[in-house]
Design a protein around this nucleic acid. Structure first.
Ligand SMILES: [Mn+2]
Ligand SMILES: [Mn+2]
Ligand SMILES: [Zn+2]
Ligand SMILES: [Zn+2]
Lengths: 152, 152
DNA sequence: TTCCTGTTGATATCGAGTTGCAATTATAGC
DNA sequence: GCTATAATTGCAACTCGATATCAACAGGAA
């Protein structure tokens, strides 16, 4: 039993349990991977990390769990400009939405929060009578380093 | 010869030719499909429409042409929340960027332009020293119709 | 502990998109 | 208009992210 049941349940686990969902060993493992990730991970990276904790976990369960988390609004899915293949990336939904910038040269991902973004969402809800559930603002371009590097 | 060579070249075609790219019959066909599309089309829809004009056109050529158009910043790629499968959708890049809202109930796609969005992009370029090449703001939620329909 | 139902793993399969390569063709130069 | 040549195409095979199926399993209420 690599993952003792007694560990403090993360927020993701608590969220799912409060919604009456069954908490399996595999789910706990996958949730802990998503929750402790310091970067944006794709499904196969999540699988690899989950297997380190519990070699039993199957690829299919990772996909099923990610779909579940998306459906409950607990993780967000990103393209990050599909810079290498068609994979999607996942991150815990933060308190406040943020913007993702992907550098088309070095691949670096930068996050950015902005009042203007919050106001824009407000405008959309008001002017379009559209009830926003999920937002995804992704920007491709060139980061500061790569800009100065390419100026000679 | 369903597509006479004498037809006025569309803007996409003119753009590509001005960049010194070869203008093949297949490309002309695919460009005309993309250019005249009234909705967001995925690759297989583009193929089907292109084949109506020239049954010779191959699936691979559609993908290659879309990649070319993306690389030249002439079309934008969208997920539209991946509501049915993993397809991507394409549209001619407009003068002014717009936002895409996808209704998670009826699937309707709504477009929206906003000064706040333009200002947000300006802020990002300034504050993050990030040179923006492409932006993609996609929002999932519930449209006005579906909201009132679900209120009993 | 029992029972029931939701969940899982193994496998096969789907389907969007890519690759390799020989045949074709656009176009620049004559 | 020809010719030469390098870009482009079509076909087939392939990659790989994601899904469907279904028997076996296990969470958790009673
Ligand atoms: Mn995508
Ligand atoms: Mn659009
Ligand atoms: Zn960079
Ligand atoms: Zn709707």
């Amino acid at each position: 039993m690599p993952l003792p049941q007694t560990e403090a349940p993360g927020r993701l686990q608590a969220e799912l349990m409060s919604r009456g969902l069954r908490m399996t060993h595999q789910r706990r493992t996958i949730l802990s991977v998503v929750e402790t990730a310091k970067q944006h991970l794709d499904a196969s990276q999540i699988l690899r990390r989950a297997r380190k904790l519990d070699p039993q976990v199957d690829r299919v369960t990772v996909y099923r769990t990610l779909k579940l988390l998306k459906r409950h609004g607990l993780v967000d899915e990103l393209d990050l400009m599909h810079m290498q293949g068609e994979k999607h990336f996942y991150e815990r939904r933060p308190q406040r939405d943020h913007i993702h910038m992907a550098c088309l040269r070095c691949g670096k991902i930068t996050e950015f929060e902005s009042d203007l973004f919050d106001r824009l969402k407000g405008q959309i809800q008001r002017d379009c009578q559209f009830h926003i559930v999920v937002t995804r603002l992704e920007i491709g371009g060139y980061c500061a380093q790569c800009r100065s590097a390419s100026k000679q």
